[in-house]
Structures are given as C-alpha cells and as structure tokens.
C-alpha cells in the first residue's frame, strides 16, 4: 500500500514534447513509472523517447490507453487549460508541476475540481513519489528509501531535505507528496493527512509548511481529532519579514496567525511534534516512532 500512485498507475504526460516534459518523462520512465502516452496539441501522431505515442488531446490518450493519471509540464499561461482538459477527460489524478499560474485561473480550476471526480496535486509542486513503484514528478528518486513514513510538503527542496534526513535516521518513506506553494492548490494538507492516516503501511507523517495562509493551522486542528499516527511538523519562514512574498506565491504573511511562530504554537497545541529547526525533522520522526513502538 501507499497513497495515490503505485506500480499500476497509468500515466499521460501533458506537454511531453517541451524540454522539461521530455527530460522528466525520461527520468520518470527510468524510475519505473508507466508512461503510456504524451499530449501536445498539434503534435499528435509523433512518437517520443521509448516509442511513446503523442496525441493532440488528453481524451484521445485516455481512449487509447486507459490512462488514469496525468502530469502537466506546460507554460503557466496554458496550465489552467491543461488541467481543465484532464478534468473533462475524467482523469482521476492530475499532477501540475508548472509554476506561476494566475490565481484567477486557479479559482476556476478549483471550482471545477470540486464538481468532478478528479484530484489535483499542485500546482507549483515537485509531484508525488511512491518509493520503488512510481514517480510522478521532478524529485530525485534515488534519495528515497522504502519505509513507513509519509511526507507532505509545500516545498520541493525541503521535501528532499526531509526525505534525506529520514533515510539518514534509518527510516524510509511510503509516499512523499509535494502539495505546492501557491495560494490555491488541489490537494491540501488535510486531504493528504487523511490519505496517510488511512494507509496501513504508513506509521508516521512529516508535514512541512511555511508562512502564509491558514492551511497548516487547519490541518493541525483536524489532525488532533482525526489522525492517530505521530506527526512531525516544520514551518519554514521564522525569519521572513512580514508582508514580503518569500519565493512561493503563497508564502506571505498577511495576518497574525500566518507567521511561523503562530503556526508552530497551534501545531504544538494540537499534539504535533514541532521541529523548530529544519535539522530536527529526521530525529524527531525517529523519536516519535520509537515512542510509539
């Protein structure tokens, strides 16, 4: 078990003929991901990499290969259209890697998602990886090790840092999931916590957030009543000046309870083991799991 993706996930890559799309498709295939088709409007009929057929639309790819997941590498101004195309084609899991999508576009996509059977991860995220089975994203696969910890993170390289620390502490991961650093995202922390809580192979959860928004606070309050597994939390941006956007579109403090300090306090009150320093993430997870056992 794991969450959302495994060795049976059948994938279509949207934007496969672009340089990012091609490069990461190759990397994903190398990891063992089942990429069955690609989509680039106007390039239907071509083949790419290991004879992967390219289609003009997601629907064609779905009709021909019965794909159930898509991953999107298209420029930000076309990304909302790509997500909507996948929703309309009935793709169950959509991963959007693209960064820089207008908020207004995402408000519409989010509304469509709420009225569909599709789940979105991202945008502006590194994707998702189920160790040794399926990599749908841009993360380095080799740093992961099969294990019993689920990782949820708003940030790409911080996810890698957490994975690395877990491995150095003798732990491994079930699935690691980058949910994205934008103000509006498809799968939020509560949804991710719920998935890991229901996954019998996952024994502990690392949840990495940052300044801005209320998501970490809402997730902590939800976890208090609904998650039985130990959670280690970390919030980046303790030293971020108020009112400044720290790289990620969503990483900006616009209210009192959006600071790292306020979030840490709420997380701790909800029983989450809070790492004040990024360097403590691995240790704390190890401690939590040892205590539990």
């Amino acid at each position: 078990m794991s969450i959302l993706v495994n060795k049976d996930t059948k994938v279509v890559v949207q934007g496969i003929t672009g340089s990012e799309g091609t490069f990461h498709s190759e990397q994903m295939i190398e990891y063992g991901t089942n990429i069955l088709a690609g989509v680039t409007p106007g390039k239907g009929g071509d083949t790419l990499l290991d004879n992967i057929p390219v289609y003009n639309s997601v629907k064609e790819a779905r009709d021909n290969h019965n794909v159930n997941a898509s991953i999107i590498f298209v420029p930000p101004r076309f990304a909302a259209g790509a997500m909507i195309e996948s929703i309309e084609a009935g793709i169950e899991l959509i991963i959007c890697i693209s960064e820089g999508i207008p908020i207004r576009d995402m408000v519409k996509v989010k509304h469509m998602l709420d009225n569909s059977n599709s789940r979105l991860i991202g945008p502006n995220c590194p994707g998702i990886i189920t160790v040794d089975e399926c990599k749908l994203g841009i993360m380095p696969g080799f740093i992961c090790k099969k294990g019993n910890v689920g990782v949820i993170s708003k940030s790409g390289t911080l996810t890698y840092e957490a994975i690395d620390q877990l491995v150095k502490n003798g732990l491994g991961q079930t699935t690691a999931l980058g949910i994205g650093g934008d103000p509006i995202i498809g799968t939020d922390m509560i949804a991710a916590l719920e998935l890991f809580e229901n996954d019998p192979e996952t024994d502990g959860i690392v949840m990495i957030g940052e300044i801005g928004g209320q998501m970490e606070n809402e997730a902590a309050l939800w976890a208090k009543d609904n998650v039985t597994k130990p959670i280690v939390g970390f919030i980046a941006g303790q030293t971020a000046p108020p009112g400044r956007r720290m790289g990620h579109a969503g990483a900006i403090v616009s209210g009192g309870d959006e600071t790292a300090e306020a979030k840490n306090k709420i997380l701790a009150e909800c029983g989450i083991s809070v790492a004040r320093s990024v360097a403590e993430i691995g240790n704390r997870m190890k401690e939590s799991l040892t205590q539990k056992a």
Binding site: T157, L158, A236, G247, A251
Partner: peptide
C-alpha cells in the same frame, strides 16, 4: 535552491 529550503 528552492524557496522553502531558502527560508529554512
């Protein structure tokens, strides 16, 4: 490299 790691 990366905004989250930069903040951390």
């Amino acid at each position: 490299n990366g905004a989250g790691l930069a903040m951390a």
